[in-house]
Amino acid sequence: MRTIRLLSLLALSLSLLGARADAELKWDHPIQEFHRVPEDKEIYAHYTFKNVGAAPVTIKTVRSSCGCTTAHLDKKTFAPGEAGEIVLHFSFGDRKGLYRKGVSITTDDKPSEPFVINLLVDIHDPVTMTPALVYWKKGDPAEAKSVQFTVEPTKEVHIKSVTSSNPRLAAKLETTKAGEQYAISVKPTDTAQKESAEISVQTDFPSDAPRAYTIHARIK
């Protein structure tokens, strides 16, 4: 009879799937936000935590939703009262704009309840150039198409030059308001055949490493 009770207890324990109430990681800042520029290239964000429970906790998995974000963990098991940290590395690549990267962490005390730490990064560019693509279909009228180059009010960015890689797709700069608003007009010689050009828009911003923006032109 005692054997049956013991085995039943074991089965009940299995059914609870390891939900231990006496172990817990407490995170200091599980959501972190950064404002950066493309030239920063990367971020290392430190997420500190402490085991505030009475039993050791082991981190079982750390999963990122993006290959651009990797997680580094010095050790996996933390004794009661012990602190630790996970370092997230976010490589910008050619990203721009607002990114939210979640990293899901499971521990042995709550294997079915992943905890998510979040990294919010705004990779800010004061210039908006739209559209970055102008195209014509073969036989279309060879009319000029315009690209708007707009600088946010707090900054001043001047265009130094506009250069097309293909003379059959010529680009012309028109200044609406120096430092704030420009238009780049792209005009094909004709649209009889397929053509492609990359138009480089060279600026003076930022002063230490001025950026060049690219307009893509195609005849399809």
Binding site: G93, D94, L133, Y135, E198, H216
Partner: peptide, 19 residues
């Protein structure tokens, strides 16, 4: 075409693209 290499890959994508 990925965001790690958007600037260098987008031209090749547009060469293959058909409206």
């Amino acid at each position: 075409l990925n965001e790690d290499e958007w600037n260098s890959l987008v031209a090749k994508f547009l060469d293959a693209w058909d409206p």
